[in-house]
Design a protein around this nucleic acid. Sequence first.
DNA 1: CTTTTCTCCTGTATGC
DNA 2: TGCATACAGGAGAAAA
Length: 290
Amino acid sequence: MPELPEVEVVRRGLADHVAGRTIERADFHGTRVARRHLAGPEDLGARLAGNRVERVCRRGKYLWLVLSEPGGDRQGLIAHLGMSGQLLVEEPDAPDEKHLHARFVFADGGPELRFVDQRTFGGMALAELTPDDVPETIAHIAPDPFEAAFDQAAVVKRMKGKDVAVKRALLDQTLVAGIGNIYADEALWRAQVHGSRPCSALTKPTLSRVLDHAREVMAAALVAGGTSFDSLYVNVNGASGYFDRSLHAYGREGEPCDRCGTPIRREAFMNRSSFSCPRCQPRPRHVPAR
DNA sequence: CTTTTCTCCTGTATGC
DNA sequence: TGCATACAGGAGAAAA
């Protein structure tokens, strides 16, 4: 699933292949991909024609193109990949994908940009930009651990004041952006903390250590992600990709813990699966709110 | 207000 | 073989 590192790989691909180009035409197929654009997919396409892509930005799992209209006004085109979204840079004569939802044709006649999404949890939307180029509609998303604006001490303080499970806090994009189920489990395994432990019961240094591990595991995944980038293919194959080999907890039920050899366990958490080591990450005695 | 649950979607894997 | 069901899960709406 695309979490921060996978989305950053896509951002870099777009920066390399789409930035600086002018959109000649944008077509949106079906009603799902542009569902946040209330005026409809045709209107969205019409608003994009003639825009130049100035830069490609990211916060957490959100991507956006900073566009400049012919009149000089700037706007943001948000793209969220959801579970299965892909942004592909392909030659115009490449056959349409089965789940093709949007196609961008550029004035230079070069490769197209396509949004392909099997499960359609992803989508695209136009937004006004704040003075620092962040779309207003995602201003509620917190900075991610790689941003200069990320204030770890402040995040730790907010976490410490919460009674919620630490894994729930890690997944809360308004606390810290970019972490999904996979990297949450990996960070908790590295920190040797069970995700059901309440934030309020952990020390501030421990909470800070969990965040350090989250940042480190995502940085390592990003390095691995860079290796699979192809010049014409913007890789978004996060779940089944190369970084799988480096995972210590996620998806490893029954396999020996890389630290102590105890079989990794799988538990239900927030209607999801959580993977952890029973020995390195003991379950809290009193499980708080799930 | 805060916190938790529900819902959206379809390909793949599993069970009978 | 075929059909039914479980599962994957980000994020916002809805409910508690």
